[in-house]
Simulated assay, not measured.
Amino acid sequence: MGVCVSHIQAKTGVAQSTVSTYMATLERAGLVRSTRVGKWTHYRRDEEGIARLIETIRRSVGSADVADVVRL
């Protein structure tokens, strides 16, 4: 199911509203998925999205010269 925002907040010490904002950003980027359970939102990794990001980085860095890497 995933990890509840309140658990992330407790572990990080960051305000719950800030955690929610960060997690929403990660969800829009395709790196996590959310599930609503009552008044709580649970997040889990989106393995396909993470794999796409890794492949994009690998292609960019793998084919880049030093100047291209610095711009990343």
Rank of each mutant, 00 (worst) to 15 (best):
A10V: 04
D65M: 06
V5K: 08
V5C: 09
G49F: 10
M23I: 02
R44E: 14
T25K: 14
H42G: 00
G62D: 07
Q16K: 13
V5M: 09
R45N: 07
R71K: 15
R71Y: 15
S60Q: 07
L53V: 12
D68E: 13
R28L: 05
V37Y: 12
G62Y: 03
V3N: 00
D68K: 12
Y43N: 07
V61F: 06
L72D: 07
V5W: 02
V5G: 04
L53R: 13
A15H: 12
E27D: 08
C4L: 11
H7K: 08
T12Q: 12
A15G: 10
V14A: 14
L31A: 05
A15K: 10
R36V: 07
S20K: 09
M1Y: 03
R71H: 15
V61K: 02
R44S: 13
M23E: 01
Q16E: 14
L31G: 05
G49D: 11
V5N: 09
G62F: 08
T18M: 10
G2L: 10
I8Q: 09
E55P: 01
T12H: 07
G62V: 07
T12G: 10
R33F: 03
G13H: 06
H7I: 04
R28W: 01
E48K: 14
L31Q: 07
R45W: 05
E27I: 01
R45Q: 09
R71C: 15
I50Y: 05
V37W: 09
I54W: 06
G62Q: 03
T12P: 04
V61Y: 04
E47V: 03
I50T: 07
I54G: 01
Y43P: 03
M23V: 02
I50N: 03
R52E: 14
V19E: 02
E55N: 13
V70D: 04
S63T: 15
R44C: 08
E48C: 06
L72R: 14
M1R: 04
I8F: 14
Y43L: 11
E48G: 14
E55Y: 07
G30V: 05
W40A: 12
S20M: 04
A15L: 10
S60W: 01
R33V: 08
T12M: 13
G13C: 05
D68G: 09
H7C: 04
T18D: 06
G38S: 00
R28Q: 09
V69Y: 00
L26Y: 13
K11T: 11
E47G: 02
Y22T: 08
R58A: 15
Q16L: 07
A29F: 10
E47R: 05
V37K: 15
T56C: 13
V19M: 04
V69W: 01
G38F: 00
E55Q: 13
L53F: 14
G13D: 11
T21N: 11
Q9N: 10
V37C: 09
D46C: 15
T35F: 04
K11L: 15
T21K: 13
A67L: 01
S20P: 01
I57L: 15
R45G: 02
R33I: 06
A64E: 06
A64D: 08
G62E: 04
Q9R: 12
K11S: 13
L26A: 12
Q16M: 07
V69S: 00
Y22R: 14
T12E: 14
R52A: 14
G30K: 06
V5I: 15
T25C: 08
R44P: 00
S34D: 06
V14W: 09
